[in-house]
Design a binder for these strands. Sequence first.
DNA 1: ATTTAGTTTAGAATTATTATAAATTAACAA
DNA 2: TTGTTAATTTATAATAATTCTAAACTAAAT
Lengths: 142, 142
Amino acid sequence: MLKNSEFVSKLRNSGLRPTKQRLKICEVLFNRDKTFHFTINDLAKNISENFNEKISLATIYNTIHAFKDKGYLKEITISSDKSYFDTNITKHHHFYDEDTNLLIDCNDNEIGKVNIKNNITGKKISSVEVLVRVASDTQNQN
Amino acid sequence: MLKNSEFVSKLRNSGLRPTKQRLKICEVLFNRDKTFHFTINDLAKNISENFNEKISLATIYNTIHAFKDKGYLKEITISSDKSYFDTNITKHHHFYDEDTNLLIDCNDNEIGKVNIKNNITGKKISSVEVLVRVASDTQNQN
DNA sequence: ATTTAGTTTAGAATTATTATAAATTAACAA
DNA sequence: TTGTTAATTTATAATAATTCTAAACTAAAT
């Protein structure tokens, strides 16, 4: 549960003015007990259905991208046509359920630390992400 | 270096007839010493520039997707707007160089085995993929 | 050879995302 | 406050990537 002033600083830190629309987006994203995963489409639908406001897609894209660039959101891309954002910005990995198309956060009880023995010379690691795809036993496996 | 008959069986196994266009695609993809990464665009350009043939995008998409579904190609998705295919279909992980936008295969000397301690109940693991993003030290990190 | 069903193709349709430009609004200085 | 400036919102247009369509073509099987 974050307060309005916290939304304002998230926006300011991302180089954005706190407008009515952006504060509404913050409320939907960050005014929760638990983090969650969403697509741009989910978010747009959520706002237009649950609040009787319509924020234009351009505004949604621009706000989400600024948050992503600033690190207030993480993007998890499953395939060229499925991309999710995660409000959990701590280092963690994911299960992806191919039956339900749902992402599930992992913690250290589920996936041990990834051991990177050698990195590319002259480069710094900016992130390490593991994606474990799962499906029901009866499903076709690749 | 694969022979024509091997391309034919790859195609047949993928439920596709071996046509002139598809065999050309096979040649470009599989008639090599080393595996490689490509985008659909790369592939289309490659074919139209290096051979003076033009295979329609529809055919390229259809063939690549059939190969992917059958497991003759792997897809590695970097972000919603960058997706690569890999002709290396063995289990392996990737570095992604954010400076050059290049994917680099990892082997076990670089990334140790990922330890999955607990899986989702009732589900089977279909793949485990690690993506390590790297960038030059001076680069902006998220 | 003939037939049948799968394939190729250009171009249309669709989808996701980004750009545009006019109307609106936040910020700030007077 | 109020007025000015610059950022923002918005609907819509533009772009890009992918999929669909239907007519012409081709492989496979009589």
